[in-house]
Amino acid sequence: MSDVTARPAEGGAAAPARNLVGFLESTGPLIALILLMVIGSLMSDSFLGAENLSNVFTRSAIIGIIAVGATFVITAGGLDLSVGSLSALVAGVTILFLNAAAQALGANWMLIAVGIAFSLLLGAAAGLLNGVMIVKGRVEAFIVTLGAMGIFRSLLTWLADGGSISLDFSLRDAARPIYYGQVFGIAVPILVLLAIAVIGELALRRMRFGRHVAAIGSSRHVARYSAIPVNRVRILTYVIQGVCVAIATVIYVPRLGAATPSTGLMWELEAIAAVIIGGTALSGGFGRIWGTIVGVLILGFIGNILNLTGFVSPYLNGAFQGAIIIIAVLLQRDRLQD
């Protein structure tokens, strides 16, 4: 993986591509996305319709926001497998909280705002717990978050009696615009994703915190000798991940108004896949948020194209998805492995 560790210095300084290899490396995921969209538009007339594009962007926003958090964690050399289960748990607990509060105080937008704050707090607390266990408890991130994944989902299943936890009908109308609403003709979840992506990109690439994250991911020991507060930064990446999961959940809940034991199933894998497709190194040391967003869109459009065209048997959907993911990463990696 020598190419990975060499990249931060090189990529930071030389943004314009000097040759084909460099060009493909920096724009690989984007080329894959454009190719995919060309295929989509050739195969289906409704693919490039405003409504279809809006649908795919909007539903990708949920995984997208989670994946922004995952980019921080992975760039710092960590891993969080608990995000899918955490979103199910945050959704369930927030709905229970809102339902109880609505009976006492009546349903209005103030209550929704309190609910959002509540879920953000919950997400941050869960992230902090993961981070402290990993950094202070010195347990592998894989083990801590694998354990947390089971714990969070079981708690939700237990709270829901194995069924679903539904948002009170009096609250649905108040919360509905968070998923279905539009500002200047653009769906709210897309705007939220955009804002979080811009903040994330700035924090990761332009701020000291982001440079610390990448330095820790390249070499924790060198970072420690360079007086970087390694423990604090690492814990903070998990807190950021927790908050991102909570924001995604806030957008998810109004869509169907319920949390079930199958909420957020496999989201962790989708988020991690999006991060890697986007060009972030799984071993840490280099990350880019815009790539992650492109990765999320690639995943979203694959499913969309399959549903719109039905040109492969539904039995083979998974194979098609797998092939596209590998090709997207091949475009940017393969040429460097010599």
Binding site: N52, T260, S262, L308
Partner: peptide
């Protein structure tokens, strides 16, 4: 339910 939502969105477009 989530998959049902997405598949239906795409059916309606198609």
């Amino acid at each position: 339910p989530d998959k049902g939502f997405e598949v239906m969105q795409d059916y309606l477009q198609r």
